[in-house]
């Protein structure tokens, strides 16, 4: 067995792991704020729940990349090549890097922004629409990283 498959698998695993960690942190932070906001005003539940969930998307993106990568390298489906060249494995790893790096960071920042937005909604419920925009802006960069990783993984597959 070569190290190529190891690096490709490591890329997929890290994409799911780091994104999941970041999302857990972001959703956790927003959840604390949501709990604080609904303690005294339970009517806010549905609004703050949406804000709490926003940092959860990065975890999904990480999972998506992990699935695509596992499927492309054949781990899913049982067609993996144990002798995958090291260069190919490293290329898969590199393709996963945008997600490995950007998703956890953006999830934490989105969590913080969601906390601030929950504060905003708990003060003025009518600002809910606007308050959604601020954490959603952070999502842009999570999506950009996801796109690059998807394109890169398919690009590497085409090379292999």
């Amino acid at each position: 067995m070569s190290f190529g498959l190891f690096f490709a698998l490591a890329g997929a695993a890290l994409a799911a792991a780091t994104s999941g960690l970041g999302s857990a942190k972001g959703v956790g932070m927003a959840g604390q704020a949501a709990a604080g906001a609904t303690t005294d005003n339970p009517d806010l539940f549905s609004k703050v729940l949406i804000l709490q969930l926003l940092p959860g998307t990065q975890g999904i993106y990480g999972l998506l990349i992990a699935f695509i990568c596992l499927s492309q390298i054949g781990i899913m489906g049982g067609a993996a090549n144990p002798d995958m060249p090291l260069a190919t494995g490293l290329l898969y790893f590199a393709a996963c890097l945008p997600v490995i790096i950007v998703e956890p960071i953006s999830a934490v920042h989105q969590g913080k922004t969601a906390v601030a937005s929950i504060s905003m909604v708990s003060k003025k419920q009518e600002t809910f629409g606007k308050s959604m925009i601020f954490p959603a802006m952070v999502e842009t960069y999570a999506i950009l990283a996801l796109l690059i990783s998807i394109l890169a993984i398919f690009g590497v597959s085409a090379l292999a």
């Binding site: 704020a33 708990s122 003060k123």
Partner: peptide
């Protein structure tokens, strides 16, 4: 975070 959110309501 929880405490500040409650303070905001108060």
């Amino acid at each position: 975070i929880y405490a500040v959110a409650r303070v905001r309501s108060h």
